[in-house]
Write a protein that binds this DNA or RNA. Structure first.
Length: 299
RNA sequence: GGUGCCAUAGCUCAGUUGGUAGAGCAACGGACUGAAAAUCCGUGUGUCCUUGGUUCGAUUCCGAGUGGCACCA
């Protein structure tokens, strides 16, 4: 029997949490969350973290283990998860990883290129430059520092350009020279299980879940962090819309509508991301027995 | 029952002096290597209510029908 990482993925609201708990229990193992927002301990209602009752059933990792005030990224996630897996495989032959953050999953499964951590001041300077001078000045600088990236990159996307500039300036080498696109070898097998259901049904679940979050106190949870609303960790569906409401820009009703719509859009983006990964085997979230059989046959 | 107004995209509505139509929102498709629930790019999806008439040609003009709204009974 191999050591296997069973990855359960799919768009938000599809039903990953319940299924993952069932599967982890049957396998007698633990769960690693691959969700870039459930990782923050301050965010509970709006990120739909598993309930206390669910968390008691199976030990979860990477839920609420960081603060919204911490800097965090996919690469840090990659290394922390690999360290944890190293420990867990001393006890278990299978570990379940579940979550919807495609890039975090990719970082763990395939790895991402190693880049230096960007100096905070440098990043702020570039952001300032972008605000003051606009995207065109970033493009011009990129063309000089890293013509290869300039050729390949989406030059309308400020975050991409900023990233390339930061790395190029900080290291003195073009950003593109770091991109070797490794598919890193992992000392364990990976089994990817994707969950999907009818679009209409998924959207109904998402809409309903947003209403439930509001009932559970999402507005109050968000209000506590109003002063921190510019943090990246709070640039998150469910929170950013309520901040707009607190600023008096939109009504509460409108904010809730937007949370629903933005959650649907997010789900669609997740589906686009996952659809190009040919290693994923797809199932309906309620066909638990089929999924268990598939796992048993492939571990 | 009578009179008037309205009927165009999923919704709210523009519009075509008669040459088969467009905005906002919603929706849909995609990209993605360290901010990723982020960020960015792309796409009108339509028996113009039905049915006769006029016309080379009707979503547009005229008649009838159906449905909705308002007012009068």
């Amino acid at each position: 029997m191999h050591q296997t990482l069973i990855v359960i993925l799919g768009p938000t609201g599809i039903g990953k949490t319940d299924l993952s708990i069932d599967i982890a229990r049957e396998l007698g193992t633990e769960i690693i969350s691959s969700d870039s927002r459930q990782i923050y301990k301050e965010l509970k209602i709006g990120t739909a973290v598993p309930s206390d009752a669910q968390l008691m059933k199976v030990k979860h990792h990477f839920i609420g283990n960081k603060s919204i005030y911490d800097y965090y990224n996919a690469s840090m996630f990659e290394f922390e998860v690999l360290d944890l897996l190293n420990e867990l495989y001393k006890t278990y032959n299978q570990v379940v990883m579940t979550g919807g953050s495609g890039m975090y999953i990719q970082a763990v499964c395939d790895g991402i290129d190693e880049l230096p951590t960007i100096d905070k001041q440098l990043r702020n300077d570039f952001i300032q430059k972008y605000h003051d001078e606009g995207i065109e000045s970033l493009r011009i600088q990129l063309k000089m520092l890293d013509p290869e990236s300039y050729q390949k990159m989406d030059l309308k996307n400020p975050k991409r350009i900023l990233k390339a500039l930061e790395v190029s300036i900080q290291t003195g080498k073009p950003y593109s020279s770091f991109l070797t696109r490794p598919k890193k070898q992992r000392p364990f097998h990976i089994l990817k299980i994707g969950l999907q259901r009818d679009r209409e049904e998924l959207y109904e679940r998402i809409n309903k879940r947003v209403d439930e979050m509001v009932k559970e106190g999402l507005v109050e949870e968000t209000r506590k962090f109003f002063k921190d609303r510019h943090l990246n960790s709070l640039n998150t569906v469910g929170y950013k819309e309520l901040f707009e409401h607190f600023e008096g820009k939109i009504s509460l009703t409108k904010a809730i509508e937007l949370i629903k719509r933005n959650s649907r859009h997010y789900a669609k983006r997740q589906m686009s991301w996952f659809s190009r990964d040919k290693e994923i085997s797809w199932f309906h979230p309620e066909s638990k027995q089929k999924i268990m059989d598939f796992i048993q046959n492939n571990i």
